[in-house]
Amino acid sequence: MSTQATGRSLVVALPPHERSEVSVARIMWSVVLALMPTTLVGIWFYGIRAAVVTLTAVGASVVVEHVIVRYFFRRDTTTVTDGSAVVTGMLLAYNVPAGIPLWQLVVGAVVAIGVAKMAFGGIGNNPFNPALVGRAFMLVSFPVDMTTWPVPGSQGFATWNLDAVTAATPLGLVKEAGAGGLSAVADQLPSYGSLFLGNIGGCIGEASALAVVLGGLYLVWKGFVPWVVPLLYLAGLGLVTGIAWAIDPGTYIDPLYHILAGGAMLGAWFMVTDMTTSPMSLTGRMVFAASAGLLAGIIRLFGGYPEGVSYSILIMNALVPVFDRHFKPRKFGYGASAGGAA
């Protein structure tokens, strides 16, 4: 707009005239950075294959999103630079065993990005966590390959075929123990130290709880994750499994084991905290996380699968609109009790 007295074109816009430096891309690339410890630990234990699996999932996710934006949405730009497809690809990779056939992973990425994310309108519009939808699809479609767990560190760094040495996951062992009780498998269970630092069978991202927590703490420090959310998820899981353990410690393993084993850490720090698929108010997110944790414990103890993290989060994702309706932030000027549960 040209102006009378200024003799220069000036931008006319409504206030505010300041914008935060935090963009969607900055948030997403921070998550990518936060996943780096997990990536490195995965490669340390599973060698070159883990790196290829990660790159394949990321590459497929980015390509699928780009193709959909350009040729289905018919836009001139692309959305892949915002980093969210990279995050989905990484999370998908860390939720599968390192030995997964690559073509299956590509199918998973197509479902994650194509069906769970872009079909709903792209970033921000997906009701379910895309990586978890992709993983759930793979689990029902390729049940054998999705539950063949290479033993970490058992094979050389450059070994491509990891299927030579496989073993049950810690949670699988606990689940299978059944009537024999935990004492039957006690000598096969990894120590807490191993669970925390790594070196246990499972998905790539489950190798080390420590690596996941390091990344999660980085996101807390950046202000992208409220620390209470992952803790409440783990607390919910600990509560259910703790009650079972208190009642019958011969059959059920203790809650600390449940928190450190399997995908609980990855779920708590990187998937329960997913912005798009969790409620908007902090109280809503807290109840959401705690409920998902309880659900994960119930599935682990009584469900058909040894692991319950993915499904606990997907089920809670479906309830987010209900949470948003009933958990509101406290409004200013309505008395101390106003604005809570409606």
Partner: peptide, 17 residues
């Protein structure tokens, strides 16, 4: 861009809206 439901606006609002 699309709203990514990050809830930063909810956290920023001094009136709790």
């Amino acid at each position: 861009g699309n709203c990514i439901r990050c809830s930063r606006c909810v956290g920023a609002c001094p009136m709790g809206l």
